[in-house]
């Protein structure tokens, strides 16, 4: 069965990996490096990401460039769940990989964006050079080209998040029967 689908897989993966449209999500200093990667000196548009869509329903790559605070966490979760299905996440910079320089004892920072949403590629350094962001996108393209239409169920199941937003409050709770009340994470 895998042999029959291999050409369709190749075309499907080629098309998706060569036209990744990022969402404009820049919270902090890494956003400047992301903007610099879009400008004339290092051009992401050469790789297909020319249009940065502002609406999450039309984007398929979420580059988390910057620190995620407790106030921003429900918004990030909502944006991730609004994106349409073949979607990928790059955690750019030390702050979104694992809390970064705020990991000592900050009361307001989430220590790593992967506590909230599943992340595909981690990109350390504070901040990464724009060429490193282009290299991360190339590694993501390499990762996409190894997917297959057969494993699509498992892939979509791995995108389900464990958190939900409590109504009327900006608090994230676990999606289970026992409601654990935490002030952020």
């Amino acid at each position: 069965m895998h042999i029959i689908l291999s050409t369709i897989d190749n075309i499907y993966n080629w098309a998706r990996s060569n036209s990744l449209w990022p969402l404009t999500f820049a919270t902090s200093c890494c956003g400047i490096e992301m903007m610099s990667a879009t400008a004339s000196n290092f051009d992401i548009a050469r790789f297909g990401s020319e249009v940065f869509r502002a609406s999450p329903r039309q984007a398929d790559l979420l580059i988390i460039a910057g620190t995620i605070t407790h106030k921003m966490a429900p918004i990030l979760l909502r944006l991730y769940e609004q994106m349409a299905e073949p979607k990928y996440v790059i955690a750019m910079g030390a702050c979104s990989c694992s809390g970064g320089m705020f990991k000592n004892d900050s009361y307001s920072v989430v220590y790593g964006a992967d506590k909230i949403i599943p992340v595909d590629i981690y990109l350390p350094m504070c901040p990464p050079k724009p060429e490193a962001l282009i290299d991360a996108i190339k590694k993501l393209q390499h990762k996409i080209k190894q997917e297959s239409l057969i494993n699509r169920d498992a892939y979509i199941r791995s995108h389900k998040t464990n958190l939900q937003q409590k109504d009327d409050l900006d608090i994230l709770t676990l999606k289970e029967d026992i409601q654990i009340f935490k002030m952020g994470l």
Partner: peptide, 8 residues
């Protein structure tokens, strides 16, 4: 400086 990886 090209340090992007799949898992931490």
């Amino acid at each position: 400086y090209e340090l992007a990886v799949n898992n931490k």
